[in-house]
């Protein structure tokens, strides 16, 4: 965990699998919230972390593997769901957003050779916003509702939880090196 040397390709692949598994397991730890049919889960915590810790390539790979597992039927999406119907349904935008969010976080975090806590926090915050951009856009598109209404049910209810998760992720990302 503390090693400063770069891990090999194979080891990073295994770490990416671990983050995919963590994201999957996080879907089951959910807290129902008012205003939104989707519960708060710890998933975005691991999306942010996989980008920040694994970098853009392996971070994205981790999220792709996670989404693939859900697509083929493993109940790893929020509320124990799975299958292509979820990905292309109203709430599927967040899943697509996970992939892009991890990429953006990884790219920003990797832009500096030794990113400080503030930089990591910023990288993860931007990545998290990317997740919501995809989530809210698909929500508005599929449910045929206006963008402000989509933001009201698809973004605002999650803000307090995400600020907390961002703080947690910053602490962890600062300590973790793979």
């Amino acid at each position: 965990m503390e090693s400063s040397r770069q891990s090999s390709y194979v080891r990073k692949m295994v770490y990416a699998s671990l983050f995919a598994a963590l994201t999957a397991a996080a879907a089951w730890i959910s807290i129902p919230i008012p205003l939104s049919p989707l519960p708060v889960t710890l998933q975005t915590l691991f999306t942010m972390l996989s980008g920040a810790v694994l970098g853009p390539y392996f971070g994205v790979l981790a999220m792709i593997v996670y989404v693939l597992l859900g697509l083929i039927g493993l109940p790893v999406f929020a509320a124990g769901q799975s299958g292509p119907g979820v990905l292309f349904g109203p709430w599927g935008g967040y899943l697509i957003g996970f992939v892009f969010g991890a990429a953006v976080t990884g790219l920003i975090a990797g832009a500096k050779e030794k990113p400080g806590l503030a930089w990591l926090c910023m990288a993860m915050a931007v990545g998290d916003i990317v997740v919501y951009v995809f989530g809210v856009a698909q929500l508005a598109l599929i449910l045929q509702i206006t963008l402000d209404k989509a933001i009201l049910i698809g973004f605002f209810p999650f803000v307090p939880g995400d600020i907390l998760k961002l703080a947690i992720a910053t602490v962890i990302a600062g300590k973790m090196k793979v």
Partner: peptide, 21 residues
């Protein structure tokens, strides 16, 4: 091959993580 291996490793990790947690 990389993807196949990663999917299998992820599937193995999920229950391990549950037990660990």
């Amino acid at each position: 091959m990389d993807y196949a291996l990663m999917i299998m490793i992820t599937m193995r990790f999920i229950p391990t993580l549950q037990v660990e947690a």
